[in-house]
Nucleic acid binder design. Structure first.
Lengths: 102, 102
DNA sequence: TAGCAAAATAGCTATATTGTTAATAATGAA
DNA sequence: TTCATTATTAACAATATAGCTATTTTGCTA
């Protein structure tokens, strides 16, 4: 697991948060991700590297292309840890709410 | 509730995250918060205004001083919503884990 | 009112971030 | 090997951020 700092810095950018959303249904290549945006390929590439450095996504090469995949456990773990550290009571409350909803 | 963007930008700075930690036990004045850090008062003031704008803290004046207070529900709500949106499955898993621990 | 204390705002500099285009690396196929 | 495709890295410009000091605002009190 990487530092909480790199994770929060990575999450601070709206483009990067949207990349995470695009990856939610499953793996996508760098090009497919870039196609979701109007900004240039290299910019997306850098965003991907920042997300990867924060361990919020991972990559694997498949032939010509590089496929990116969400790391939901890392994301949940990082944000969850921060929440537990700063406001543990409210996490418990939200948990109870959700349980009611279910 | 403010935008998720302002919240994540606010949380991206380590000083601001530490301010939240300092506020965890209870209200503190701007000066008391500044005393926890080596950087200047005006810098802390700016950080406080960013946290307040993101609704992660609130302020109230008491005579001469301004007391700041954590808004744990807002923090939990903002991060929780993002988690639900990006990786709902893992939230459920973490919830189960925690339940086991308890 | 004048003076003091607490905090915010203004104005500035240095650094970081985000975007661009051009060049480079890696893989697959003719 | 040569070419095409996919993606990253390099180099640079524009903007944003975080820090500082000096000044202003706000409230208390003599």
């Amino acid at each position: 697991m990487k530092s909480i700092s790199s994770a929060f810095r990575a999450l601070a950018d709206p483009t990067r948060r949207q990349i995470l959303q695009e990856l939610k249904p499953g793996e996508l290549s760098a090009g497919e991700i870039a196609a979701c945006f109007t900004i240039s390929g290299p910019s997306i590439s850098r965003h991907l590297s920042i997300l990867k450095n924060a361990d919020l996504i991972s990559e694997r090469r498949e032939g010509n292309r590089i496929l990116y995949r969400l790391e939901p456990e890392q994301i949940a773990h990082t944000l969850g840890d921060f929440l537990s550290a700063v406001c543990p009571t409210q996490i418990a409350r939200r948990r109870r709410w959700k349980r009611k909803e279910a």
